[in-house]
Computed example of a mutant assay.
Amino acid sequence: MKRKRVVVMGFMGSMPIAGVIWQHIHYIVGLQRLRHDVYYIEDSARLPYNPETFEVTDEFDYAAKVLSRLAGEFDFKNRWAFCARYLPGNPTAGLSLKKIRQLYREADAILNVCGTQEFNDDLLVSDRILYVESDPGVEQIKIDQGVKSTIEYLRRHRALFTFGENVGTKTFPVPTHGFKWLPTRQPVVTDLWKTKRTPSDVAVFTSVANWSTSGLKDISWRGQKYLWSKSREFLRFISAPKRAGETFELATNIEHTATHRKFERNGWRLRCPLQMSV
């Protein structure tokens, strides 16, 4: 395979929580393992989130610290950048703005992971931007509803990829209106999960999740409302610990007292997720 220069774009610096970080790291490391020349860039007008102070501000010191640490750990040191498009002069951490612009011009492919990257004049010099959709259904519904901003945004990409393997097939109910969606899957570098440590006698099955988005990202289509939150679907599996005969520990923020107690009655151990995910 011919070595390519690939830019991965995402939001793991501005939203530095465990699931978001791991999703991006698998792309970076996976492409490195395929012998490609890989860079990571965040170039956004969105304000970053600091999970230690629980604040969204225009300061990007924490985001830069996170990206620098990850770059050292996963071998993309001197190959990352955070550009604060929301500040005058577009200041950066990591690579300079000049280098960012050069990468946009020269990259063989630019991966817009999760479709979170806004466009700007610098980025739009490239005609090799690939949209990677991790939450299928939403954009297809917006297209069907004629949302102009979504349609224009997607059309600026060279190709559209989605985790929804049925999108565009007869089994997918939402019309695609001429948009070609290519199926893909989340890359997983399996040895990142390997350890030489054996499980302790008190090891349990664990997960961490945000319980509710308060309806902010719910979407309706043809009379049916689709929820973004995990809460309703998670309740279908509330009896899992009893059925499996194992201990399940869930780090999440269930604020409803009755629901919290219902999980505990079914054998779940519940923990606060805030510090565990940072």
Score class of each variant (00 low, 15 high):
residue 8 V to L: 08
residue 17 I to Y: 11
residue 19 G to N: 04
residue 24 H to G: 06
residue 39 Y to D: 01
residue 49 Y to L: 07
residue 49 Y to T: 06
residue 51 P to L: 01
residue 57 T to S: 12
residue 59 E to V: 10
residue 59 E to T: 10
residue 62 Y to G: 00
residue 69 R to H: 11
residue 76 F to T: 05
residue 78 N to M: 06
residue 82 F to V: 07
residue 86 Y to H: 14
residue 88 P to C: 03
residue 93 A to T: 05
residue 97 L to P: 04
residue 102 Q to Y: 12
residue 106 E to A: 11
residue 108 D to T: 06
residue 109 A to W: 05
residue 114 C to R: 10
residue 115 G to E: 01
residue 118 E to G: 12
residue 128 R to C: 07
residue 134 S to W: 05
residue 137 G to E: 01
residue 137 G to P: 02
residue 137 G to L: 04
residue 137 G to K: 01
residue 140 Q to R: 09
residue 141 I to T: 08
residue 143 I to V: 14
residue 144 D to V: 04
residue 144 D to H: 11
residue 148 K to Y: 13
residue 155 R to D: 11
residue 156 R to E: 06
residue 158 R to S: 14
residue 158 R to W: 13
residue 162 T to C: 03
residue 175 P to Q: 07
residue 179 F to Q: 02
residue 184 T to N: 09
residue 185 R to C: 02
residue 190 T to L: 14
residue 199 P to G: 02
residue 200 S to K: 13
residue 207 S to A: 15
residue 211 W to R: 08
residue 214 S to E: 15
residue 218 D to T: 08
residue 223 G to M: 08
residue 225 K to N: 14
residue 246 E to Y: 07
residue 248 F to D: 03
residue 249 E to P: 03
residue 251 A to P: 02
residue 256 H to E: 15
residue 258 A to R: 14
residue 262 K to A: 14
residue 263 F to W: 03
residue 271 R to C: 06
residue 278 V to M: 13
